[in-house]
Design a protein around this nucleic acid. Structure first.
Length: 588
RNA sequence: GCGCGGAUGGUCUAGUGGUAGGACCUGAGCCUUCCAAGCUCAUGGCCCGGGUUCAAAUCCCGGUCCGCGCACCA
């Protein structure tokens, strides 16, 4: 966004939140019942802005990239989250200090002070015992923690699917799992060809201990996520298209360094010198251009690499997009290399295959030890365990074919050793032709927080200036995201002016523009009203409009308050072109 | 969850142990030929629950919510 000579970027959280409440961007939910922490409602302006941001994201990350968009449920059954690792990860153990009142992660306290390495896996009573036995103390004040209750805190919202409580489900903590869990079907839609991408825009839920800073950290929020599935050995991103994009990077190495600094560079150069992984680099480049077009101030924007201890359980590398608000950096998006983690886990835990068949350039011939057991022998011999015996024989053949060299082969079954005549196993070494192999794709994940972006766009757009000696507050929103694109006013109370203005409203709406009509109070008040919600243009019908044959109206531009007279005839067309970015007000 | 500070019309705020006042906004009207002007009128409020008291929006206790710090953010 360009700096204006007169306008100040004067936003603070306080005056932005006040404006948001007063003008209908967002406000706390359920206020009539005292309010509830961490839940916000987007009002008429906010819902429109958010919708425009989502549309812009969809255009860029789904449509323009040729990716598929899906819409999965927000509730999924427990096994999904057992597989994803969230069920283990969400049970944080907290212990509170009796002296200073601070809460600490009980498992961390134990791990730091004892030889236990994975305290998170221990049952609660055992953790309490360990704390008592080792006489562990509060890391903050040193008071003894023995005897203090260890409590779990549940970061996923739990619910029951159907009547009773036999079938637990959870509200998804990220939209991503809705994509991963449907991978076997999605790969069919992609005709089993890598790479392909799947996007989803939707709600996610985390029962945060402490929601903060209005819509920055809530318990229900909207994510826009892309899961891009690649073959890590063969697929490469289109780096050329983003090589020249300038970015501010804050790599882990600089953060660890005393006096480490952010680096100004280009995507191409950062890949060249090894700072960025090519796939993450590609999306950092695309996203930086996209954020700039939406009105995020690029002087207050950077990409920061996660430190090793900061990464999620699934990520091998992660960069965050961050925006500065009130002197704090907040996370707008995360760009993770999730590797094969998610698909491998679902492959393991579910009945379906989460793999893609990669065909070799040339079919390979391999020698393979196989078994073809004689079931008429194994059946009577082992009864119901015969199936397990077969599995064991197959495993054994694959890992140690020498075991079959004698007259009989030994297998272990539930701790007991059994001898089976080799002739009954059907053991053979065969030559097989393999056309390819099943691989687990790797996942590159750009994950955007929509609510935080809406907040940032508003914050970075907030301006105060003076017009004719009067103070003015306005939002310098990009036309693409502004909730209302144009306001239409009759200059003053007058039937003829109002009739003409209403006709113009109809024309503009027919052209697909978001229009508001206002005939109350004097004209200046109406301009200011639209300025404050960020409406880019206002059209005013005056007496010149209705007195002349070639009817014209004034069109006022929000940021400069400059006005131009334009014919009514092609007003809709002209404004639609501006909205689409094909024309600018200066060119009129 | 802990600590500190808050909570008065839609918004911002004044206020006192005797049940509330302003400003802006909003609506109606007058005026008005382009930037929150002026005049008249109107709508609308003490976060919730207990306690003390003749009387609580005010004092006390508990809760909810907000802000900040700690912790948490998979």
């Amino acid at each position: 966004m360009s700096d204006d000579d007169t306008a100040e970027t004067a936003a603070t959280s306080e005056n932005l939140v006040e404006l948001a409440k007063r003008r209908g961007y967002f406000f706390q939910s359920s206020g009539a019942y005292g309010g509830v922490g961490g839940f916000y409602t987007f009002g008429p302006q906010g819902a429109a802005l958010k919708g425009n941001v989502e549309d812009a994201w969809r255009d860029r990350f789904a449509v323009a990239e040729g990716n598929m968009e899906i819409d999965a449920p927000t509730i999924m059954p427990e096994p999904v989250f057992e597989a994803s690792g969230h069920l283990d990860g969400f049970d944080d153990m907290l212990v509170e200090c009796p002296e200073c009142g601070e809460s600490h992660r009980a498992d961390h306290v134990v791990e730091d002070e004892t030889e236990y390495e994975d305290a998170e896996g221990l049952p609660i009573p055992e953790v309490e015992e360990v704390i008592a036995k080792y006489e562990l103390v509060c890391p903050s004040c040193g008071a003894g923690l023995a005897g203090q209750a260890v409590e779990t805190f549940n970061l996923m919202f739990e619910t029951n699917i159907g009547p009773g409580d036999s079938d637990p489900g959870y509200l998804r903590p990220e939209t991503a799992q809705g994509i991963f869990v449907e991978f076997p079907r999605l790969k069919e839609y992609a005709r089993n060809q890598l790479p392909f991408g799947v996007t989803q825009i939707g709600r996610a839920y985390r029962n945060e201990i402490s929601p903060r800073r209005s819509i920055i950290r809530t318990r229900e929020f909207t994510q826009a996520e892309l899961e891009y599935f690649i073959d890590p050995e063969t697929d490469e991103p289109d780096l050329e298209s983003v090589a020249d994009v300038e970015v501010t990077l804050y790599p882990a190495s600089e953060q660890n360094e005393e006096g480490g600094e952010e680096i100004e560079t280009t995507i191409g150069a950062a890949v060249e010198d090894g700072t960025l992984d090519p796939w993450i680099a590609y999306y950092l480049g695309v996203a930086r251009e996209w954020y700039a077009a939406l009105g995020v101030d690029m002087d207050r924007f950077r990409y920061r690499q996660h430190l090793a201890g900061e990464r999620s359980h699934y990520a091998s590398d992660c960069w965050d997009a961050e925006a500065e608000l009130d002197g704090n950096w907040i996370e707008l998006a995360g760009f993770s290399d999730r590797g094969a983690y998610d698909l491998s886990k679902h492959d393991e835990y579910s009945d379906d295959r989460f793999t893609i068949f990669r065909q070799y350039d040339e079919p390979k011939t391999v020698e393979r030890a196989v078994v073809d057991p004689d079931m008429s022998y194994l059946g009577p011999e082992f009864g119901g365990a015969a199936g397990d015996v077969v599995d064991e024989l197959e495993d054994l053949a694959a890992r140690d074919r020498s075991a079959f060299e004698g007259d009989s082969v030994e297998i272990d079954l539930e701790g007991e050793t059994h001898e089976i005549p080799v002739e009954k196993t059907g053991f053979a070494v065969e030559e097989q032709t393999e056309a390819g192999e099943h691989i687990v794709p790797h996942v590159i994940e750009p994950s955007f927080g929509v609510d935080r972006l809406v907040y940032t766009v508003l914050h970075h757009a907030y301006r105060e200036d003076e017009v004719d000696g009067e103070e003015r507050t306005y939002l310098e929103l990009e036309p693409e995201v502004a909730p209302t694109f144009v306001g239409v006013f009759p200059l003053q109370s007058d039937d003829a002016l109002e009739t003409e203005a209403n006709e113009i409203v109809d024309d503009l709406r027919a052209a697909g523009l978001s229009v508001t009509y206002d005939d109350s109070g004097n004209i200046g008040r109406r301009y200011r009203r639209q300025d404050e919600v960020g409406t880019p243009f206002c059209v005013t019908v005056d007496f010149e409009t209705i007195e002349n044959e070639a009817t014209t109206v004034t069109v006022r531009e929000r940021d400069t308050t400059e006005q131009k007279r334009l014919p009514v005839e092609d007003l809709a067309e002209t404004l639609a072109a501006i909205r689409a970015g094909d024309l600018s007000f200066d060119e009129l």
